[in-house]
């Protein structure tokens, strides 16, 4: 009997939601204002101390670097690719040639870290070609796995200024 009476006295408690909604909306506005979409970026790490170039005679035990020449037209468009003096059709062809070069070098006992590649390009060439060339020679993706090829990449010193 006492229990029934006490239940009758219970009242519905109304929680005031206004402060919580205020805070929640302020948080949302903060996050919306600080929201910025950043495209994922990556790096090609290149170590280039001063004074290292193909002009210097290589060590006897060291493999001569692969020479990649990128020539451009006056407006910066790629005009031609040469690898060790031989013409290359495109970056895909360059990748295949470098891959076979690396395979032969490894079979003859060289370490992948010993293989160097030098990029020699015209001053006016669009920089996008440098990244395309580095992408072509630094590795390839097979079955979703990255197979690294050339790790040591350098530039031939500038010969002429515009």
């Amino acid at each position: 009997m006492r229990y029934i009476l006490s239940r009758r006295r219970l009242k519905k408690v109304e929680v005031n939601m206004t402060p919580m909604i205020d805070v929640v909306f302020q948080l949302m506005i903060f996050f919306m204002l600080t929201f910025n979409i950043i495209a994922p970026e990556g790096d090609f790490d290149v170590r280039m101390p001063l004074g290292k170039s193909s002009i210097e005679p290589p060590d006897e035990l060291q493999l001569p670097p692969i020479q990649v020449r990128l020539s451009s037209s006056d407006d910066g468009v790629l005009a031609g690719i040469l690898m060790n003096g031989e013409p290359v059709a495109d970056y895909l062809d360059l990748r295949q040639r470098v891959a076979s070069f690396v395979d032969v070098a490894i079979e003859s006992g060289a370490s992948p870290n010993d293989i160097e590649l030098e990029i020699d390009c015209d001053y006016e060439l669009d920089y996008i070609n440098i990244i395309d060339a580095i992408t072509a020679v630094s590795g390839r993706i097979e079955d979703g796995r990255l197979i690294e090829m050339i790790k040591k990449i350098s530039f031939v010193p500038l010969k002429k200024m515009p």
Partner: peptide
């Protein structure tokens, strides 16, 4: 991507002359 490759090389060369050796050429992944 449309910058002159020579300008990039020149910047790297100036950095090398000041003793910097580590470079990261950045690209969109």
């Amino acid at each position: 991507g449309r910058a002159n490759a020579g300008d990039v090389q020149r910047v790297i060369q100036i950095c090398q002359e000041l003793g910097f050796q580590q470079f990261a050429l950045r690209a969109l992944y």
